[in-house]
Design a protein around this nucleic acid. Structure first.
Length: 224
DNA sequence: CGTTCGATGCACT
DNA sequence: GTGCATCGAACGT
């Protein structure tokens, strides 16, 4: 069952934190791909210089101003799609960028998508690297601009509480409470000082080189 | 290890 | 024309 819209109709940092450990699912004719969210970033309001809404309401940023619980997908650097979950009340532009997943369903399909077009053998891609980084995970899940504005409470692209895997073992990874941490956001040129990136510390699928300077444990966040 | 740099499309100035 | 919420190969320590 997808998470209800009310989940997204909350302060963005709380949504960002609570998305960690949830399952992001994309169903396509080629099959289902899914993964547990292990890294996400908050982009909040027109006063956040790294948020696209800093440019105001434009055709591109319109989804950010829309209903909470829809996807905001955009194309960037000429080659990567990035997927966000829109948060907070309608008219209040904010979103959470999904940056990394631990693959769960459709791993062979993820490998085919990641190596499509490249001459690279699919076997060379480690499972933990399939959805490491926001551009990589959209490629592995087949998310493109066609998914912009889709309802994340719908039936094709959605987020849900992880259930048990087929083997009976829980889909949960080792997210002990004290391994959830906050840091500065990655890859932006402005607004770096805000510690609005949430991730599972030490998880192999988390992107980003070394541990950035700030590191705050779960629920010890100054803005939360 | 580390850093640099090219590939590439689109929104906005 | 410029600047990206990127990635990975190719270099230099």
């Amino acid at each position: 069952m997808p998470l209800p819209r009310a989940f997204y109709d909350r302060p963005t940092l709380a949504v960002c934190r609570d998305l960690i450990g949830k399952l992001l699912v994309h169903d396509t004719p080629a099959g289902r791909t899914s993964g547990l969210i292990v890294e996400a970033e908050a982009y909040i309001g027109e006063s956040d210089p790294a948020c696209h809404a800093a440019a105001g309401l434009t055709p591109r940023t319109e989804p950010l101003y829309g209903r909470p619980g829809i996807a905001y997908v955009y194309f960037n650097y000429g080659m990567h799609h990035l997927v966000n979950a829109v948060t907070e009340a309608e008219g209040s532009p904010a979103a959470v960028l999904i940056r990394a997943l631990q693959p769960v369903d459709g791993i062979p399909l993820m490998r085919r998508r990641r190596t499509r077009g490249t001459g690279r053998p699919a076997a060379s891609l480690e499972e933990s690297g399939l959805c490491r980084g926001p551009g990589n995970l959209t490629k592995a899940l087949g998310i493109t601009l066609a998914q912009n504005r889709v309802d994340l409470g719908g039936t094709t692209l959605f987020v849900e509480e992880p259930g048990a895997l087929e083997g009976g073992e829980p889909a949960m990874l080792s997210i002990a409470a004290d391994t959830l941490a906050w840091s500065e956001r990655i890859g932006i040129s402005v607004g770096r000082e805000r510690p609005w990136r949430c991730f599972v510390e030490g998880h192999p699928a988390v992107s980003g080189r070394v541990a950035p300077g700030t590191r705050l444990p779960r629920d010890r966040h100054p803005d939360l």
